[in-house]
Simulated scan of single mutants.
Amino acid sequence: MTQSLNPTAVPPAFPDHTQLPDSDGTFVKNFLAHPQSILLTDSLETTLQALHPDGQYAIGQDCGIYWRETDPPERGAEAPDWFYVPNVPPLFDGEIRRSYVLWREYIVPLIAIEFASGNGSEERDNTPLSRLPEGGNQKPGKFWVYEQIIRIPYYAIYTIKTSELEVYNWVNTRYRRLEPNDRGHYPIDLMGVELGIWEGSYQNQTQRWLRWWDNQGNLLLTGSERATLERQRADREQQQKERLAAYLRSQGIDPDLI
């Protein structure tokens, strides 16, 4: 017997971050990815506080951005190594986000960054959904999804082996590859910062790292770097006071009486 349809029945709601997988079961591909993500987030803290005094922003690190309902669900998601979304609450309905679900949020990330362990071909893959076989488990290219579906304004690819950085800006429905400025940095105008490569030591690794600079070319420091500078400044001031006190005593003057 054919089951009758109820025209007033409400269709099931689209799933949210609590109902979708928060991992695709793959390993992190290199030891650089985790500290690199922390470095980007930590050094951007004061800038984000100035941009969002109300605290309304979210940072994702290797978290899924769900853009389409699929079976299995992971086929409808991409997980940038690092991304920033302005003007959204840090929690969703009072809960820590397990992923970022576009049909629940409606605000797209402003920038996504990928750390390419290989030659970057996966991150540049522009294969559209229309070229994939029906019923298969293949996913469209990451580049195509960011450009044509999510439309993230800035997309950066950092190829770790070669220390090559590519930055794209979404203009007139397409990604346009940006040229670096005179400092070798890429301005991210909507954030008032620049993205570039810095060579140094972080978390016991001396590498070429992605870092932020302000639009005047000043390196944005991590909390630890700011604390170190403060200690050095305090030490210099203390040394100056001690030298002055020693000089005064050599002249027969008690510095404590001044």
Rank of each mutant, 00 (worst) to 15 (best):
P86A: 07
I197K: 14
S4V: 11
W82V: 06
K142M: 06
P90R: 07
D81S: 08
W198P: 09
N137K: 12
E122F: 02
S130Y: 00
I107N: 07
E134F: 03
Q216G: 07
I59F: 07
I253H: 04
D54T: 06
S23Q: 11
T47Y: 03
Y57T: 03
E242V: 13
D93W: 01
P53M: 04
Y186S: 05
D189N: 12
F31A: 15
E105S: 04
C63E: 12
L51R: 10
G120S: 06
P21W: 05
V171I: 15
E225I: 05
H34R: 10
P133G: 02
E134A: 07
L220F: 13
Y168S: 04
R177H: 11
Y146G: 02
N6L: 12
F31N: 15
N181S: 13
P21L: 09
K241W: 00
G76E: 12
G64N: 13
L44E: 02
G60P: 05
Q19Y: 01
N169I: 11
R98C: 08
W212R: 07
E69W: 07
Q56T: 09
Q205H: 13
H185Y: 13
D256T: 14
P133K: 07
R151E: 08
W103M: 06
C63D: 08
R177E: 15
T18H: 12
R68W: 00
F115A: 00
R97K: 08
Y106Q: 05
A156V: 08
P35F: 03
F14T: 08
N6A: 07
A79C: 08
E147W: 00
R236E: 14
